[in-house]
């Protein structure tokens, strides 16, 4: 579920859930953990690209969630609130690993001649994303391409385009200026396009 989709969520019932969890027994807490742990690991693993680090982040995130349930005000859905905690936890790990430092993405960016004219080959895109995604191989190619991006760019793309945070929220989460987020986002998209060109050109069979 995206952050935008979350607007339709029933926040009042989420407040009840949060309140019940605070008073609740171990059995209801475990049910809550089991209902949410898979998407949380999925979210953390996308950010960290490592399963064991993702599981550690989720464990720490749950501790934080249980501790701070009384601060949940229902301004967003419970899931959005939890997602922010997981994302923050995973980003903390990335910071500790010093993986957020900017590294070169130049070889993946478009090139231009001395007159500012585009040098890269282009072609007409024939297939729609829906038809391309009918193939599991294509989905895998997209995941592999994203993982090839340097972390400093991959994270901006994941947070803005996939998790659907706003530019200012991404700037805050990654401790960057908004203009830097925009530059990185465009470069990440342009690099991803180059990596996905063989898919879009139909060179990876469906």
């Amino acid at each position: 579920m995206s952050l935008q989709d979350d607007n339709i969520a029933d926040h009042a019932s989420d407040l009840d859930t949060a309140s019940a969890l605070q008073k609740g027994d171990d059995a209801s807490a475990e049910t809550f953990v089991r209902e949410n742990i898979r998407w949380m690991v999925h979210t953390a693993e996308r950010i960290l690209k490592e399963r064991s680090a993702a599981e550690d982040s989720v464990q720490a995130a749950f501790v934080k969630i249980f501790r701070s349930l009384d601060s949940f005000r229902g301004e967003s859905s419970l899931r959005t609130w939890m997602r922010r905690i997981v994302v923050n936890q995973a980003l903390m790990v990335l910071r500790k690993q010093e993986r957020l430092r900017e590294t070169s993405i130049e070889p993946l960016l478009p090139s231009f001649d001395g007159n500012g004219c585009r040098l890269d080959e282009t072609w007409l895109v024939k297939d729609t994303p829906e038809s391309l995604l009918a193939s599991a191989q294509i989905s895998q190619a997209v995941m592999t391409a994203i993982d090839k991006l340097p972390d400093a760019y991959r994270l901006v793309l994941l947070l803005r385009d996939i998790e659907e945070y706003s530019t200012s929220q991404v700037a805050h989460l990654l401790e960057l200026s908004e203009s830097n987020v925009k530059v990185r986002l465009h470069r990440a998209r342009a690099a991803l396009k180059k990596l996905l060109d063989p898919v879009l050109a139909g060179e990876i069979s469906q």
């Binding site: 729609t128 994303p129 396009k193």
Partner: peptide, 12 residues
Amino acid sequence: AYIASLELTKKA
């Protein structure tokens, strides 16, 4: 192609 790649990524 830039837009198609972005849509493909979002959907995937």
